[in-house]
Protein backbone atom coordinates (compact mmCIF):
# COMPACT_ATOMS: atom_id res chain seq x y z
CA UNK A 1 0.00 0.00 0.00
CA UNK A 2 1.35 3.40 -0.82
CA UNK A 3 0.16 6.32 1.19
CA UNK A 4 0.09 9.84 -0.21
CA UNK A 5 0.78 12.49 2.42
CA UNK A 6 -2.18 14.79 2.97
CA UNK A 7 -0.27 18.05 2.86
CA UNK A 8 -3.38 20.07 3.69
CA UNK A 9 -3.46 18.28 7.02
CA UNK A 10 0.21 19.03 7.70
CA UNK A 11 -0.34 22.66 6.73
CA UNK A 12 -3.40 22.91 8.96
CA UNK A 13 -1.35 21.62 11.89
CA UNK A 14 1.40 24.11 11.07
CA UNK A 15 -1.10 26.96 10.83
CA UNK A 16 -2.62 26.05 14.21
CA UNK A 17 0.38 26.17 16.49
CA UNK A 18 2.27 23.16 15.17
CA UNK A 19 4.98 25.06 13.27
CA UNK A 20 7.63 22.83 14.80
CA UNK A 21 6.21 19.53 13.55
CA UNK A 22 8.90 19.10 10.92
CA UNK A 23 11.68 19.67 13.44
CA UNK A 24 11.07 16.22 14.91
CA UNK A 25 13.84 13.74 14.11
CA UNK A 26 12.07 10.79 15.73
CA UNK A 27 14.39 10.21 18.67
CA UNK A 28 11.61 8.84 20.87
CA UNK A 29 12.41 10.91 23.97
CA UNK A 30 8.77 11.96 24.06
CA UNK A 31 7.47 8.39 24.10
CA UNK A 32 9.93 7.50 26.84
CA UNK A 33 8.74 10.48 28.93
CA UNK A 34 5.03 9.91 28.43
CA UNK A 35 3.02 8.70 31.45
CA UNK A 36 0.15 7.83 29.15
CA UNK A 37 2.31 5.60 26.98
CA UNK A 38 3.09 3.58 30.11
CA UNK A 39 -0.59 2.78 30.58
CA UNK A 40 -2.01 2.76 27.04
CA UNK A 41 -1.27 1.99 23.40
CA UNK A 42 -0.52 5.68 22.75
CA UNK A 43 2.97 6.43 21.43
CA UNK A 44 3.87 10.11 21.23
CA UNK A 45 6.72 9.76 18.70
CA UNK A 46 4.49 7.75 16.41
CA UNK A 47 1.72 10.35 16.56
CA UNK A 48 4.18 13.13 15.66
CA UNK A 49 5.43 11.00 12.74
CA UNK A 50 1.86 10.48 11.56
CA UNK A 51 1.36 14.25 11.69
CA UNK A 52 4.49 14.79 9.56
CA UNK A 53 3.26 12.25 7.05
CA UNK A 54 -0.15 13.90 6.78
CA UNK A 55 -2.01 10.79 7.94
CA UNK A 56 -5.23 12.66 8.62
CA UNK A 57 -7.79 9.85 8.71
CA UNK A 58 -5.57 7.57 10.80
CA UNK A 59 -4.93 10.24 13.43
CA UNK A 60 -8.25 12.03 13.75
CA UNK A 61 -10.16 8.78 13.98
CA UNK A 62 -7.89 7.21 16.58
CA UNK A 63 -8.73 7.04 20.27
CA UNK A 64 -5.02 7.45 21.02
CA UNK A 65 -5.16 11.08 19.92
CA UNK A 66 -7.13 11.67 23.12
CA UNK A 67 -4.92 9.70 25.52
CA UNK A 68 -2.56 12.65 26.10
CA UNK A 69 -3.20 14.51 29.36
CA UNK A 70 -1.24 17.58 28.15
CA UNK A 71 1.25 17.05 30.98
CA UNK A 72 4.15 18.60 29.00
CA UNK A 73 6.72 15.99 30.13
CA UNK A 74 7.59 15.33 26.50
CA UNK A 75 7.76 19.00 25.54
CA UNK A 76 10.15 19.71 28.41
CA UNK A 77 12.55 17.02 27.23
CA UNK A 78 12.32 17.16 23.44
CA UNK A 79 15.84 17.89 22.12
CA UNK A 80 14.35 19.59 19.04
CA UNK A 81 11.97 21.91 20.89
CA UNK A 82 8.98 20.43 19.16
CA UNK A 83 5.76 21.90 20.60
CA UNK A 84 4.27 18.44 20.96
CA UNK A 85 1.21 19.44 22.97
CA UNK A 86 0.37 22.18 20.47
CA UNK A 87 0.63 19.65 17.64
CA UNK A 88 -1.68 17.25 19.48
CA UNK A 89 -4.12 20.08 20.24
CA UNK A 90 -4.07 21.13 16.57
CA UNK A 91 -4.94 17.57 15.51
CA UNK A 92 -7.68 17.36 18.13
CA UNK A 93 -9.17 20.62 16.84
CA UNK A 94 -9.18 19.13 13.34
CA UNK A 95 -10.80 15.94 14.63
CA UNK A 96 -13.58 17.90 16.34
CA UNK A 97 -14.03 20.12 13.27
CA UNK A 98 -14.59 17.01 11.19
CA UNK A 99 -17.30 15.82 13.57
CA UNK A 100 -15.30 13.39 15.67
CA UNK A 101 -16.08 14.04 19.32
CA UNK A 102 -16.60 11.74 22.29
CA UNK A 103 -19.74 11.93 24.42
CA UNK A 104 -17.93 12.75 27.67
CA UNK A 105 -16.15 15.61 25.96
CA UNK A 106 -19.32 16.89 24.38
CA UNK A 107 -20.95 17.00 27.80
CA UNK A 108 -18.14 19.19 29.13
CA UNK A 109 -18.45 21.51 26.13
CA UNK A 110 -22.22 21.72 26.55
CA UNK A 111 -21.80 22.62 30.21
CA UNK A 112 -19.47 25.45 29.25
CA UNK A 113 -22.06 26.83 26.84
CA UNK A 114 -24.92 26.47 29.29
CA UNK A 115 -23.25 27.55 32.54
CA UNK A 116 -20.09 29.37 31.55
CA UNK A 117 -18.38 26.68 33.64
CA UNK A 118 -17.33 23.16 32.74
CA UNK A 119 -19.09 21.63 35.75
CA UNK A 120 -22.66 22.42 36.77
CA UNK A 121 -23.76 23.68 40.16
CA UNK A 122 -25.93 21.43 42.38
CA UNK A 123 -27.91 21.67 45.62
CA UNK A 124 -25.33 19.78 47.65
CA UNK A 125 -22.56 22.24 46.88
CA UNK A 126 -24.90 25.18 47.43
CA UNK A 127 -25.54 23.91 50.95
CA UNK A 128 -21.83 23.33 51.56
CA UNK A 129 -21.04 26.84 50.37
CA UNK A 130 -23.70 28.34 52.58
CA UNK A 131 -22.43 26.47 55.61
CA UNK A 132 -18.98 27.94 54.96
CA UNK A 133 -20.37 31.45 54.81
CA UNK A 134 -19.72 31.70 51.07
CA UNK A 135 -22.24 33.01 48.55
CA UNK A 136 -24.54 30.09 47.69
CA UNK A 137 -23.90 30.66 44.00
CA UNK A 138 -20.25 31.50 43.28
CA UNK A 139 -19.63 35.15 42.33
CA UNK A 140 -18.97 34.48 38.62
CA UNK A 141 -21.13 34.37 35.47
CA UNK A 142 -23.21 31.86 37.43
CA UNK A 143 -24.61 34.68 39.56
CA UNK A 144 -24.23 37.48 37.06
CA UNK A 145 -26.74 37.33 34.22
CA UNK A 146 -25.33 40.29 32.27
CA UNK A 147 -21.85 38.82 32.33
CA UNK A 148 -23.27 35.48 31.19
CA UNK A 149 -24.93 37.22 28.25
CA UNK A 150 -21.57 38.67 27.23
CA UNK A 151 -19.99 35.26 27.59
CA UNK A 152 -22.73 33.83 25.34
CA UNK A 153 -21.92 36.43 22.71
CA UNK A 154 -18.28 35.34 22.69
CA UNK A 155 -19.36 31.73 22.25
CA UNK A 156 -21.64 32.76 19.42
CA UNK A 157 -18.91 34.78 17.71
CA UNK A 158 -16.53 31.81 17.68
CA UNK A 159 -19.27 29.41 16.56
CA UNK A 160 -18.48 26.97 19.36
CA UNK A 161 -21.91 25.35 19.33
CA UNK A 162 -21.61 24.47 15.68
CA UNK A 163 -18.03 23.30 16.12
CA UNK A 164 -19.08 20.74 18.72
CA UNK A 165 -21.90 19.61 16.45
CA UNK A 166 -24.85 21.05 18.34
Amino acid sequence: MTATPNMDFVNDIIANGGESVNMCYQCGTCTASCPSGRQTSFRTRRLVRMAQLGMKDETINSDELWFCTTCYSCTERCPRDVAIVDIIVAMRNLAVASGKMFEGHKKTAQSLIKNGHTVPINDEVKAQRKALGLAEVPPTVLANKDAKKDFDKIMKATGFKKIIGE
Binding site: T70, I88, V89, N93, H105, T108, G116, T118, A147, I164
Partner: peptide, 14 residues
Protein backbone atom coordinates in the same frame (compact mmCIF):
# COMPACT_ATOMS: atom_id res chain seq x y z
CA UNK B 1 -16.32 32.52 33.50
CA UNK B 2 -14.44 29.22 33.25
CA UNK B 3 -10.81 29.93 32.27
CA UNK B 4 -11.72 27.89 29.92
CA UNK B 5 -10.23 24.51 30.74
CA UNK B 6 -7.07 24.02 28.67
CA UNK B 7 -7.14 20.24 28.34
CA UNK B 8 -10.66 20.01 27.04
CA UNK B 9 -11.89 23.32 25.59
CA UNK B 10 -8.54 24.17 23.98
CA UNK B 11 -8.46 20.64 22.55
CA UNK B 12 -11.88 21.18 21.00
CA UNK B 13 -11.38 24.64 19.55
CA UNK B 14 -8.34 26.79 20.14
Amino acid sequence: SCCPAPGVIRSFDR
